[in-house]
Design a protein around this nucleic acid. Structure first.
Length: 264
DNA sequence: TGAGTATGTTCAG
DNA sequence: TGAACCTACTCAT
C-alpha cells in the first residue's frame, strides 16, 4: 500500500510495461473519462515518482496520481476481464493491464503543473540525487517533533505512517524529540536508513524493516512477500528486542507506535 | 446490515 | 482541529 516505495515500484512497472508503446486508456467509473479520451491510443513516454505522487508521461499531458489512503493499482497480464465499476482508470496494451481504483487524485496536468506539485515537496530519499542538506534544513529548523516532521511531505517526501514508526524504532529515537534538538548524526542515521528501506521496499512494493534474526519461526515460515514490523500495529505485543509492551499514541491525528524502553 | 478501520491529503471553521 | 473524500474489507449485531 501507498508510501514512497509503492509509488516508485508503480512507476517502474508502468514504465516497463507501457513506455514507448501506444496505450488504450479508459475510465470505467467515468470520473476520468474526459481525460482518458485525451490519452487513449497515445504513447506513454515514461513514468516518474516523487514521494507519494506518481506521474505517467504521455508526451506533454501527464497523468498525475495520488493514491491517498486506500487507492491502489491492480497490475495484471493482459486480461479480458471486465474492470470493476469503481475502476477510475484502465491502461492496457496487448500484454498488460493496469487498473486504478480509489485514488485521492487522478488528473491530467501539464509539465508546469507537475513542477508546481514537486516544488512543494521535500527531498525524496529514494532519489539518487536527493538533496540531503535541504532535508536537514527542513528538520533542524523546526520545533515540531521528529514523529510529526517525518510525516510532513514538505520536509521529506515519501515517508508514511509505517516507515515513520519503523525508522524511529530502528534509530532508537524518542518520537517526541523536536527537530531542532536533533544532532546531525541522528538525522543522518534516519535519512540513510530511510533511503535504504525505501529502496528495498520499492523492489517488490513490500515494506521490509525487520532484521530476520528478530522474526519468530512462524513468521520466517511465511516468507518473502509478508510484511512484518518492529512496532507498527503491534500495540500491547512484546517488543522484539526488549520484551516491553509496544505503546500507541496519536500524533497529528495519526497513530504512532513505539517501544517505551528502546526509544528514549 | 452497519460500524470501524486503513500505509493520505485538503479544506472549512 | 475535525470533517470530508476516495474504496474494500473485517467484525459485531
Amino acid at each position: 500500500m501507498p508510501e514512497g516505495h509503492t509509488i516508485r515500484h508503480l512507476a517502474t512497472v508502468h514504465e516497463k510495461w507501457f513506455a514507448g508503446k501506444k496505450v488504450k486508456a479508459s475510465s470505467p467509473q467515468g470520473r476520468f473519462a474526459l481525460y482518458a479520451r485525451q490519452i487513449d491510443d497515445q504513447v506513454m513516454t515514461h513514468a516518474s515518482a516523487h514521494g507519494k505522487h506518481l506521474f505517467l508521461h504521455f508526451g506533454k499531458p501527464i497523468v498525475h496520481v495520488h493514491l491517498g489512503l486506500y487507492g491502489w493499482f491492480t497490475l495484471t497480464k493482459a486480461t479480458q476481464e471486465q474492470p470493476t465499476g469503481t475502476t477510475r482508470l484502465r491502461l492496457q496494451n496487448d500484454e498488460y493491464t493496469s487498473d486504478l481504483v480509489g485514488p485521492t487524485k487522478c488528473e491530467l496536468i501539464t509539465e508546469e503543473q507537475m513542477h508546481l506539485i514537486t516544488a512543494k515537496l521535500g527531498p525524496d530519499p529514494i532519489h539518487e540525487d536527493a538533496d540531503v542538506e535541504q532535508a536537514w534544513n527542513n528538520i533542524s529548523k523546526s520545533k515540531k517533533s521528529i514523529a510529526s516532521l517525518l510525516m510532513n511531505q514538505a520536509a521529506i517526501a515519501g515517508i508514511g505512517n509505517v516507515y515513520r514508526a519503523e525508522l524511529l524504532f530502528r534509530a532508537q529515537m524518542d518520537p517526541m524529540m523536536p527537530g531542532n534538538k536533533m544532532s546531525r548524526d541522528e538525522f543522518d542515521e534516519i535519512w540513510c536508513d530511510a533511503r535504504a528501506l525505501l529502496r528495498i521496499g520499492a523492489v517488490d512494493g513490500v515494506i521490509k524493516t525487520v532484521n530476520p534474526q528478530y522474526l519468530t519461526n512462524e513468521e520466517k515460515a511465511v516468507g518473502g512477500h509478508a510484511q512484518f514490523s518492529y512496532v507498527y500495529k503491534r500495540t500491547g505485543l512484546p517488543c522484539r528486542i526488549c520484551n516491553t509492551k509496544i505503546e500507541q499514541s496519536n500524533v497529528d491525528g495519526r497513530k504512532l507506535y513505539w517501544c517505551p524502553e528502546c526509544q528514549i
